[in-house]
Design a protein around this nucleic acid. Sequence first.
DNA 1: ACTCTGACTGTACTACGAGTCCAGTTGACT
DNA 2: AGTCAACTGGACTCGTAGTACAGTCAGAGT
Lengths: 203, 203
Amino acid sequence: MEQKVDTRSRILDIAEAAVLEKGFEATSIEEIVAGADISRGGFFYHFKDKNALARAMLERYIDAENALYDDLFARARELNDDPLHSMLIGLKLLAEMLEEMPTGHPGCVIASTAYQDRLFDEGVRELNRQAILGWRKRFRGMFEDIARVYEPREPVNMDALGDMVSGVVEGGLVLQRALREHNNASEQIMLFRTYLKLLFAST
Amino acid sequence: MEQKVDTRSRILDIAEAAVLEKGFEATSIEEIVAGADISRGGFFYHFKDKNALARAMLERYIDAENALYDDLFARARELNDDPLHSMLIGLKLLAEMLEEMPTGHPGCVIASTAYQDRLFDEGVRELNRQAILGWRKRFRGMFEDIARVYEPREPVNMDALGDMVSGVVEGGLVLQRALREHNNASEQIMLFRTYLKLLFAST
DNA sequence: ACTCTGACTGTACTACGAGTCCAGTTGACT
DNA sequence: AGTCAACTGGACTCGTAGTACAGTCAGAGT
């Protein structure tokens, strides 16, 4: 009975790595089953079709990302109670985490699916959308907490500022992939951190 | 003899629209030839394979993007000779341009191919890389001009700041695609503009 | 008028991956 | 001993990439 969970997540592991490496369409079920050491029939036992695989991958990825953010910013808050400074610590931790991944960050499944979304059904696209809206809400809330203590030096749209966290990470990962460098995403986050320092500077 | 140019760019037009809509692999040669009203043989006469099509698409896209940046920032420079203010004007023009596209910006071929790059040969990937390095150089130069007049209020890596223009645009387009909204990219550019105002503020 | 060439059309072929169907196997639990 | 979830394995259909090649056709050069 543990086999079930085991095989399913093994499929997801292999599929995720392959999809991040070369895209969804370019990843064949053949190679997934070869990697997971199961038969084609076994694959379709777990997933109705490739679309179901995409949905499961996205769900898992989004959950992991959310858990990571929860953990990271909770730790940052423990280190400093001030909303601005805990945000700055959290971003630093995030940047360090991205940098420490030896092979570079696997890249974001969100962007990967966003650019191939006509392959997927409405459910997958909606999942993608809700994830980004969730991050917008999360970061907007944190920025509003900061703004209550530190008056922004320039007027900013808080929704857009919340989106900017996702945007900077996604954009940084795109650069990283295209340039074949390995610290662009973390550098972009550090630049965004400087932005926040300037925007909410108390001087 | 004009037929040659005509058919080739007609194929590229149709292919680009289809690829931006649903990704490269999901776009079949069948549908391209149907859209361009030619035969399959005709397609392979112009392009050896899908990889050659990808390369031609990228080349054309990068040239267009570079021409657009040349034009935009040249106009901005005409309107204000100060490097900071012409940069701010140029970004505003870019944001407005993105917003005015009625159906939303087609999306960036760079990001689209970056996430499917194992489909392509080294030439395509190198093209992608060089384009982003070119933008890095372009914007870093502009930021250095600004920094000579306005001392940055916080130390920043100029390469990374140059990359941030591309990153913010790419990231904004990813958000826009995933959220199905239509002004995220322009909002992100405006936020980046505010960043520059704060970073190079003379006060 | 004649030929040559570039830009195709049309057809037939191979190879491969997605997805379907299904009959049979295996090991754990009851 | 029987049941069920979790598979295996094979045969099939269908759509797409890519190859090959023979033929068409308009226009430029001679």
